[in-house]
């Protein structure tokens, strides 16, 4: 474990600030890109190009009346929206943004990520249950089932990456991709990870949790005002965080492609700037990818989601893991 210095606090502060704001920006990006995909204009009235739209949205959310259903379970109804936001914010603690630019480097940070991700389910599930409405409950139950199912292929895909690295620290995972990104070494694992990441963040084609046609608003049907805003914020933060994780595990983190072979030595400041820009650019691309998929591919049915998770992705990820382990053991 590395020492916690004042630099860690600066990185923590900046990354939390960026993450919170990136959620607002992602909402704007989603509305604009959706509009362009559907040959519309999208929000363009507030500020230049509509860039102040997120601020207007947040003000609207805060000023709205906060309604709690009479027969709901008040305490849990209030606590539930906090859980996904907190778990989303906790993930930045272990993600490296550049060489030496990270908050902390714990020896089992991959496990930490999985642990935090698995706690995020409670928010959605409790929201569904405490609202005391059948749509919410169905949404919450679907969320619980879906997230448990896709945690397994996600974990196996990460495990297949760990085989190349030989360490459970994400900082080492990032550093190991200097020459070869893991997408080139482990393409099946990358595909499984991306699919599972989509499912974990409840995005289309896996947004059966809040399927409007069947469940009104899913688990947040009974939520209004900023409590709904929290779920909204959490969803977009999870999109950003999952983009960061896809980048970190499979797309070379802060490294340019094959950087080890051609990138010259640079001063630490220049290298730091380059690393962070590369990381942010890749994350931005994957956020776009998330949005792109959402407005291109229709939603699965619930049984299809379960079949895909348990009967296709899980066996595939286990076979992939064993194949990589065998190749690494016998050939290297």
């Amino acid at each position: 474990m590395t020492e916690i210095t004042s630099a860690s606090y600066i990185v923590l502060g900046v990354s939390l600030f960026m993450l919170l704001n990136s959620a607002a920006l992602t909402v704007y990006a989603e509305r604009r890109i959706a509009a362009f995909i559907q040959y519309r204009v999208g929000p363009n009235r507030v500020g230049p190009l509509g860039l102040l739209q997120p601020i207007a949205d947040v003000v609207k959310l805060i000023l709205k009346e906060d309604v709690t259903p009479r027969n709901s379970y008040r305490t849990l109804h209030t606590i539930a929206p906090l859980i996904p936001v907190v778990t989303a914010l906790m993930t930045v603690a272990v993600i490296p943004f550049g060489e030496g630019i990270f908050v902390t480097n714990i020896n089992a940070s991959v496990l930490y990520l999985l642990a935090i991700a698995s706690l995020g389910v409670y928010g959605v599930t409790l929201a569904g249950w405490s609202s005391n409405s059948k749509y919410s409950l169905l949404g919450g139950l679907r969320a619980a089932a879906q997230m448990i199912s896709y945690e397994l292929p996600l974990g196996m895909a990460i495990a297949s990456v760990i085989l190349f690295v030989g360490s459970l620290s994400i900082v080492d995972v990032a550093a190991a991709q200097e020459n070869w990104w893991f997408i080139f070494l482990n393409p099946i694992g990358a595909i499984i990870f991306i699919i599972a990441a989509f499912a974990e963040s409840n995005r289309t084609p896996f947004d059966i949790v809040e399927a409007e046609q069947e469940l009104v608003g899913g688990f947040h049907t009974e939520y209004s005002s900023m409590k709904f805003g929290m779920f909204f914020l959490a969803e977009y933060m999870h999109v950003v965080i999952n983009s960061m994780l896809i980048t970190t595990f499979f797309f070379g983190s802060y490294h340019l492609p094959f950087a080890g072979y051609w990138l010259p030595e640079m001063s630490p400041l220049l290298k730091g700037l380059l690393d962070v820009s590369v990381f942010v650019a890749k994350t931005g691309f994957f956020v776009f990818f998330f949005i792109w998929i959402r407005w291109t591919i229709p939603r699965f049915k619930f049984n299809q989601v379960m079949t895909l998770g348990w009967a296709k992705l899980l066996p595939m990820s286990i076979v992939n893991f064993m194949a990589i382990a065998a190749v690494l053991y016998f050939l290297f």
């Binding site: 999985l114 642990a115 991700a117 698995s118 706690l119 389910v121 409670y122 599930t125 249950w129 139950l141 619980a144 089932a145 997230m147 448990i148 945690e151």
Partner: peptide, 9 residues
Amino acid sequence: GAIMVLFLF
């Protein structure tokens, strides 16, 4: 993360 979610379910 896993067992208690199943219980709750």
